[in-house]
Structure formats: structure tokens, C-alpha cells
């Protein structure tokens, strides 16, 4: 690999990593499971790198990334078992189109979420972090806590709803677009 290619590689990795979480969230909104998301993210990162020389550094990386990720999601969808709750392709298109439009505000929501997570009561915060920890299943976490999986899901749903409300209030207070 030549020096300029090295440079190009590093540039790509730097910008890709900066946007990876947002891109991952975008893909998450189109697919039913995290395994699907992981697979599509790997594919997308490859395609992005392959097409990296086509990318105009002046333009918006996220928009570009969303277009490619959306395509990869639809490709992945065709390979998937339809027994799982895979959204219809027209709905994926619709969600992706609108999602690409609001990328900036989703970013604001993530910033707000950092504060909201800090403000969360410690016990609730612990539940969320344990339930979401890599490699853990809800069933395991629930049985460790002496709860049923259903009860844990309910608790998680409540915490997420509270977090969303907190995010909305924060954004309004700070005058950011919802």
C-alpha cells in the first residue's frame, strides 16, 4: 500500500468511525434485530470503503452513508427469513427517506440523551446498562434479578419512555429542532 493510499485509508477510517454510531442507529430503525444490523453495517462499511474514492469530501458523509446503508438494508432484507418481523420494503424506503432528512436532529437527540442518562435514578440506570450489556440476554438478566422476562421488558419500556420524554424536553428547552 502506497503512502497516499495509507492516507486515504486513515481518512476513511477516521470519518467512518465518527459517524458509525449514527449510521448504526439509522440502520437499526430499519431492521428487526441487532444481528441484522451488525451484518448490514459490515457490508455497508465495505461498500463505503470501496466507493470511498467517489466520495466528495465537501459533501455530507452521513447522507452518503445513509443512501448506501439503505441499499444494503434492502439487499439484506431480500435474503432474510420472512417469518421474522421484517418490515415491508416500501415501509423501509419511507422510514429511510424520512430518517435521512432528520439525521441532524437525531444527532441532537443523542446529545440530549447523554444528559438524560446521567439524570436517571441510579437503580434504573443500572437496570438499563445490565440489560443492554453485550452478550447478555433479557432472560438471563431477569432471572438474576429474580424477575420474569416479561416484567423486565415492562420495566425497560417504562425507562425508555421516560428517557424519550426527557430528551424531548431537553431539546425544547435548548431550542433545538425536535
Amino acid at each position: 500500500m502506497g503512502a497516499s493510499e495509507d492516507q486515504s485509508y486513515e481518512d476513511f477510517v477516521r470519518i467512518f468511525m465518527r459517524h458509525e454510531p449514527q449510521l448504526r442507529a439509522f440502520v437499526r430503525s430499519l431492521l428487526p434485530t441487532w444481528d441484522d444490523v451488525d451484518e448490514v453495517m459490515q457490508e455497508s462499511s465495505l461498500v463505503l470503503w470501496r466507493k470511498w474514492s467517489d466520495f466528495d469530501p465537501e459533501s455530507n458523509f452521513m447522507k452518503w452513508g445513509c443512501v448506501i446503508a439503505r441499499f444494503e438494508v434492502l439487499k439484506h432484507r431480500r435474503r432474510m427469513a420472512r417469518d421474522r418481523h421484517v418490515l415491508a420494503s416500501d415501509l423501509i424506503e419511507l422510514l429511510a427517506e424520512e430518517g435521512t432528512e432528520e439525521i441532524e436532529s437525531l444527532h441532537a437527540q443523542r446529545k440530549a440523551l447523554e444528559n438524560c442518562l446521567r439524570e436517571l435514578p441510579e437503580n434504573q440506570r443500572r437496570i438499563v446498562m445490565t440489560a443492554y450489556a453485550p452478550g447478555r440476554t433479557i432472560k438471563e438478566v431477569a432471572s438474576e434479578a429474580g424477575k420474569s422476562a416479561t416484567a423486565l421488558y415492562k420495566t425497560l419500556n417504562r425507562i425508555r419512555t421516560a428517557l424519550l420524554e426527557c430528551v424531548n424536553t431537553t431539546i425544547k428547552r435548548e431550542g433545538l429542532a425536535p
Binding site: L94, E98, L106, Q109, R160, V167
Partner: peptide, 22 residues
């Protein structure tokens, strides 16, 4: 749809936060 995206975006953000902590 907007709520759907916000909710799953939250799911993604929490997954990320938990893995960092882990």
C-alpha cells in the same frame, strides 16, 4: 414513524452506552 425512529435510535444509543461501560 417519527416516534418509531426515535425509539429505535434510543435503543441504538443505549446499546452503545452499555457496551462502552462494559
Amino acid at each position: 414513524r417519527a416516534y418509531f425512529r426515535r425509539y429505535l435510535n434510543l435503543d441504538a444509543a443505549l446499546t452503545e452506552a452499555a457496551s462502552v461501560e462494559d
